[in-house]
Amino acid sequence: MKDFNIIVRPQLCVGCRQCMIRCAEAHSGCLTLAEAIRETPLAKPRIFVGPGPEGKPFPNKCRQCDPAPCEQVCVPGAIRTDIYSGLKIVDYGLCIGCTMCAMTCPYHVIRFFPHWSNPEKFKTAIKCDGCYQRLERGKVPACAEACKTGAIIWDEENRFWERASAEFAGSSYQVKP
């Protein structure tokens, strides 16, 4: 699964935010939407749909950089790569909420909220973890499963880019009347 990734194609996003809802549900304590909306603290999404160029919706999430600036500056070592191969995952028990990771993130996708597993703690870093717990159960990430337009997909990176390149090349050489 190391070569697989969540691929975002913002040109297909309609701004419905189903990805955000299902992401929050997948990261809730109870894992069901009906119960998740009653949890305290409320589960938060790890993907954010906001205005992009020309005001069009843009789904933004962690790009799992390598090397990851957030991981490099994390003083307590809370952003880890040893939990699931290829993913930078926040260990909520180690995070001290110092915000160093957010200051270095070039994509501005790290947020800070109380986490349901430790609600007494003021705040912890919240970022996309690739839904590694779903992957361990043979499921795809919640945002990709929820997206009906294909703006967010779970695919093998090189295979996706090969198809996209071939599609682009084919459309570039079509004769238009």
Rank of each mutant, 00 (worst) to 15 (best):
Q11G: 10
R63L: 15
T40E: 13
A68E: 02
I89A: 07
F4W: 13
V49F: 02
P51R: 11
C70L: 05
P10A: 12
I47S: 09
A24N: 04
R63Q: 15
G29K: 07
A24G: 07
E71N: 09
V49A: 11
A26C: 03
S85R: 12
I6T: 14
V75C: 00
M20R: 04
I21R: 11
G50W: 00
E39C: 10
I37Q: 13
A34C: 00
G55D: 07
K61M: 14
C62N: 10
C74E: 06
C62R: 01
G29T: 06
R22I: 00
E54C: 03
G50A: 11
P51Q: 13
R38W: 04
A36F: 00
I6Y: 00
C30K: 12
C70A: 10
E71A: 15
P45Q: 07
I6S: 09
P41E: 05
V75L: 13
S85D: 12
I21C: 01
Q64E: 13
R80W: 08
S85Y: 03
N60S: 14
T81H: 12
K88S: 15
L42E: 11
R9S: 11
P59N: 10
C74R: 04
Q72D: 12
R9E: 13
G29Q: 09
G55S: 11
E25S: 09
E25H: 03
G77R: 09
Q11P: 00
L12F: 14
A34F: 03
F48K: 10
I89V: 15
P53N: 12
P67M: 05
V73A: 11
G86I: 01
A34V: 08
T32Y: 04
E35I: 01
P45S: 13
P67W: 07
T32M: 01
C70H: 04
V73H: 07
G52K: 07
L31D: 08
R80E: 13
A36Y: 05
Q11V: 04
C23F: 03
H27G: 09
L31C: 07
D66Q: 12
D82F: 06
V75S: 12
C13W: 00
R22D: 08
N60I: 09
